[in-house]
Amino acid sequence: MTLARAKPVLLPAAALLAFELWARLSHLQSDSLAPPSAIVVALGAAIGDLSILAATRDTLFAAFVGLAAGGGIGLMLGVAFGISRPLDRLMEVTIEAIRPIPSIALLPIALISLGFGYRMEIVIVAFACVWPMLILTRAAVRSIEPRLMEVSRALRLSPAQRIAKIVIPAALPRIFVAFRLSAGIALIVAVTVEIAINPLGLGAGIMLAQQALRADLMLAYLVWIGVIGYALNILLIAAQRRLFGRAALAGDNT
């Protein structure tokens, strides 16, 4: 039993150990690599002087505000398109024309109109978050049991009541899956924008460490960004299990 539990960690642990030994024995001097122990020390120092925590706060702030804005727009459009087939068909070409624009291509536009800072990052994150939310919400609303809609008609609910009392509750588990995917995308886009251009947050931190030729700090940032991404994912999966149980896992094969 203990072996079965140890299996997943065995390989990374062995790789880290081998790398540490190799770095020590060859007295590694490099701008791009550092032994794991040095990375841990750099990470500890960066947490100690709060610099990496402040950067994390900046990145998460931009990611979450963008997620809220873009996710909200995507949710509203998704519900509207899911309920009204004609609306969906009318908007089809427009949506298909805008959606394939890679979010990062908007970066220069956001840059000249909003300048550096939170606002441009939030706009780009929001743009990226609209699409998964829209598409998955639309699919979720469409797959609502038709009898529920019949009930709402029999009860003569107004459209607003129908959405609040029938559509949203029925589609909520799958909407949360869409939210979880969007949250991952938001973090990725936020870090990417920071690395590409925005002097803010974790992405700027790792670029700065690279330019200062601090390989240990750079890799510490890389590890930390990985931990943040992993923690966010775990947290949202746990929330999904707790809130919706098995209901949310239906139709979610990731």
Binding site: S32, A196, G226
Partner: peptide
């Protein structure tokens, strides 16, 4: 496979500075 699953949520663009350094 578990190590790969662990790496999956990593924002891949974070590898760019490392690639630039190398």
């Amino acid at each position: 496979a578990p190590s790969l699953e662990f790496l999956r949520p990593l924002p891949v663009s974070a590898i760019i500075p490392v690639a630039i350094a190398m």
